[in-house]
Structures are given as structure tokens and as C-alpha cells.
């Protein structure tokens, strides 16, 4: 079954092919810790001079350990965080000056599926679609279709979200983003915490979304297999800096490695699992 989406023909036809879906230059973002915490008032640089370009129709995988700056970068691209320095353009539009126009072109799925938990999947999604100008007559049919494709039974759509499993909630979150037909979809660790079957269903959906609907996808993950399976190009983010970038083949060749794991180790000086564990300890 093909994915049914609301097209934006004018935008898709008029967008010059040379205009990148996302062009970020020199992005820097830091946070000041609370004066009451240890290291009072310290400035933590979460993203340090990152420049990257995602071409239209591309799936770009941003690979990094927990705390490497992936989510911060996605939140900057989603207009939820203001960068301290640098410029972001989405299909040529400046994210600050043309914020409303940019918002019409993007959507984001975060690692936490944030919803009104007492409302049903249908109520949450009808509301979310309304915010993008899609009325309930149009959205209801699409909600059933998209969620059925993601393996969510239609009978569960009327249940409060809090009664659905974490995997199902994440699928509803993906449907929420997809309903608005974004030209650039920002996926922040969309499969974290999902079982293998759900993970595969989501990954297949993401690929189909790009193949069938000309969507551009920026995906963050700390799953090497997922990056290799889905991404056309991969960027490795380490301590806020983009330390390597290329296709999986280019990266392995360039680093003289046989796997992405080896590439990650060479580029960052640590194993992905070790980096995750260290960052988890630091955040405790």
C-alpha cells in the first residue's frame, strides 16, 4: 500500500534542485549550568562549530554517543533552540527570519513520544494535524492508513495514549510527523527503546517515506546498524563536533576500516558503547 500524503506541489516543483534541504554553517550552542549545581555557572558547549548539508531526498544519519550533541542540533533545526552562532537554511529559507515558513516544511519525532496521555491516538493526531491546517475530514482517514501501515490496529486508536505500549506510542509519534507531509523530517533516535519488530517496521516506513514521497530525512541514532541500513550519508558527532562525514563506504575506505564501529573508534578514539556509558555516568 502506498503512503498517502498531502503533497505541496508548488513547493516541490519550484524548489531548485541545487538548494539543499538543510544547510547549516558554523552552528554553535552552549548552555550555562545552574548556579546551584556543581561547577556553578559553567558554560557547556553542546554543539561546536558544526556545518553540514543535507541534499533534497537524502537520508542523512547523524551518529553519536549519548551527550554528543545530536539532540541539541536537531532542536536547533526544529526552531526549538536558538543557536549562539551560525546559520541554518531549510530549502533556502533562513530558520530565524522565515521561521513560520520553515515550520510548514519540517516536522520532528523525538526520542520521547510526547502526547496528551489521556487523549486517544486519534484525538492527539487530529489535533496535531489541525495545527498544520489539515482538517479532521482529511486527517482521520490518513491516520488510520498510516498507523495501519506501521502495524497499529485501528481498534486501538480510540484508547488513551497512556494505555499503549512505548513502541506503539512511538509509532503514533511518527504518524504525527508524517501527517503534516513534511519536506524535511527530523528524526531524533526514533527507534530507541523499540523491540526488534517495531524497529524494523519504523525503519521500513522511513525508507518508503523517502522513496515514495521525496521527503528528506535527518536521522540521529547511536545504533550503528540503523545508520548503515538507512542513511545515504553518515556524519559522526563527537563532543559537539562533526568529526567525520561520508557514505558508509567512503567512511570505511577513508579510515581503512572494515566496519562502521571501527570508523567510529578511529574518528572518536572510543567505542560507541563505552562513550554512551561514560556519558550516562556523567549525567547521573
Amino acid at each position: 500500500m502506498a503512503i498517502d500524503t498531502r503533497e505541496r506541489p508548488a513547493m516541490r516543483e519550484n524548489a531548485p534542485s541545487r538548494v539543499a534541504a538543510l544547510a547549516a554553517t558554523g552552528i554553535r550552542k552552549g548552555f550555562r549550568s545552574s548556579r546551584l549545581e556543581a561547577g556553578r555557572g559553567a558554560h557547556l558547549l553542546a554543539v561546536d562549530d558544526v556545518s553540514l548539508r543535507v541534499e533534497r531526498g537524502e537520508i542523512y544519519g547523524l551518529l553519536g554517543a549519548n551527550g554528543s550533541g545530536k539532540s541539541t542540533l536537531i532542536r536547533v533545526f526544529s526552531t526549538l533552540l536558538t543557536a549562539d552562532a551560525g546559520e541554518v537554511r531549510i530549502f533556502g529559507l533562513d530558520i530565524r527570519r522565515d521561521e513560520l515558513a520553515v515550520k510548514r516544511l519540517i516536522n520532528r519525532v523525538s526520542v520521547e513520544a510526547s502526547f496528551f496521555k489521556k487523549l486517544s491516538a486519534m484525538e492527539n493526531l487530529v489535533y496535531a494535524a489541525r495545527l498544520y491546517g489539515v482538517g479532521p475530514d482529511e486527517s482521520r482517514a490518513k491516520i488510520v492508513s498510516v498507523l495501519s501501515r506501521l502495524g497499529v490496529d485501528e481498534k486501538r486508536l480510540g484508547e488513551p495514549l497512556e494505555k499503549l505500549s512505548r513502541g506503539m506510542q512511538q509509532k503514533v509519534a511518527i504518524a504525527r510527523a508524517f501527517l503534516t507531509a513534511p519536506m524535511l523530517l527530523l528524526l531524533d533516535e526514533p527507534t530507541t527503546g523499540l523491540d526488534i519488530r517495531s524497529k524494523r517496521e519504523v525503519q521500513t516506513f522511513v525508507r518508503d517515506l523517502r522513496d515514495e514521497h521525496d521527503a528528506t530525512i535527518l536521522l540521529t541514532t547511536h545504533d550503528l546498524d540503523e545508520a548503515a541500513r538507512l542513511a545515504d550519508r553518515i556524519g559522526i558527532l563527537h563532543e559537539g563536533r562533526l568529526v567525520a562525514e561520508g557514505t558508509a563506504a567512503e567512511l570505511t575506505t577513508g579510515y581503512g576500516a572494515s566496519t562502521l564501529e571501527e570508523v567510529f573508534m578511529t574518528a572518536t578514539g572510543r567505542r560507541l558503547d563505552d562513550a554512551d556509558a561514560t556519558n550516562a555516568e556523567r549525567s547521573e
Binding site: 526549538l80 510526547s114 502526547f115 495545527l131 498544520y132
Partner: peptide, 9 residues
């Protein structure tokens, strides 16, 4: 959900 409300156009 505030992030999604603020992200909407």
C-alpha cells in the same frame, strides 16, 4: 507537548 505546539506553524 509544548515543543510540538511551539514547532507548529
Amino acid at each position: 507537548t509544548i515543543e510540538y505546539t511551539f514547532m507548529a506553524p
